[in-house]
Design a protein around this nucleic acid. Structure first.
Lengths: 152, 152
DNA sequence: AGTCGACGGTTACGGATGCAACGAAATCGG
DNA sequence: CCGATTTCGTTGCATCCGTAACCGTCGACT
């Protein structure tokens, strides 16, 4: 057995689930990135923060982290960045002065409103290239591992 | 409409495909990481390089990059790291002296052979928690977007 | 009230990452 | 056969990231 192509002892990377998920996520994100990066110079954490606040209204940093699956340091830095842009304002919660209540400013909300249709179109364009049965399969399959890994 | 929960104007992040893929890929990878990180202190690029060479035998850095979806600087640094460990050796191709032919040493091959069953078991354990129909759906769904994004 | 542990959020720091620029070698074009 | 262009791989640099340590605040328990 000269090289590693031995069936039993080798692993087919291209069929290995962690690898497939990563490669796919990276490819899709890299593509989607152009929407929020070229238009506004947003980073991914900043986009996610914007998306969280746009969707849910006022939130705390911890809530944003849970909602958008980001480490608290990422959230913290994204908050500083969007605050710098005047896209969001923070207010210390008078009930609990450890907490900050985060909300988009009108300018931030405007940017969000501008990005949402582009995001929707991106996803729609992507899904349109799949057959209906494939879309369904994707939805079912992703939901299944999400139950195992993300949700509960 | 006070906050962003407005159906038409907001985006449900948790159902947004790029977000779902990223969150899932990160969660799965974070879990899988422990296998190659705690046992050998490998980074992800190093693991991928090992996996590529273990599967295909001798390759060039460019081929590894294509096979494992890594930027050439990642490959370059991973090669240096595994060479440092004596897990791989490089040889300048005499036919084209720009190219290096990379191959695992016996020590590297041994580490690979040791990791493969663990990787297989990880994937099997993950898939075992899914119903057969869900596994099928996942396979079909991922393959479908891969065709659009990764492959052709 | 005073102490202690838990919690929200920030920051210093070491390490990883991608871009761009680079050197060396091959290939192409005249 | 020589200069221009392309390719392989490396490296400098600026940025991003997570870990751990930290500060201020809250709540519980004494």
């Amino acid at each position: 057995m000269e090289h590693g192509a031995d069936e039993a002892a080798s692993l087919e990377l291209e069929n290995f689930l962690p690898y497939r998920l990563n490669r796919l996520a990276e490819a899709v994100s890299r593509d989607f990135q152009t929407i929020y990066r070229t238009r506004h110079g947003l980073t991914r954490p900043e986009w996610r923060l914007l998306a969280s606040l746009g969707q849910h209204g006022t939130m705390t940093a911890t809530e944003v982290g849970r909602d958008s699956a980001m480490h608290k340091t990422k959230v913290s830095r994204a908050v500083s960045a969007l605050e710098e842009r005047r896209w969001l304002k923070r207010e210390t919660d008078p009930e609990d002065r450890r907490v900050e209540r985060l909300a988009l400013t009108p300018v931030g909300a405007k940017a969000y409103a501008e990005l949402v249709p582009l995001a929707r179109r991106f996803e729609a364009d992507l899904l349109r290239t799949l057959a209906p049965a494939e879309r369904k399969a994707l939805s079912v399959g992703l939901a299944a591992i999400e139950r195992r890994f993300v949700g509960g």
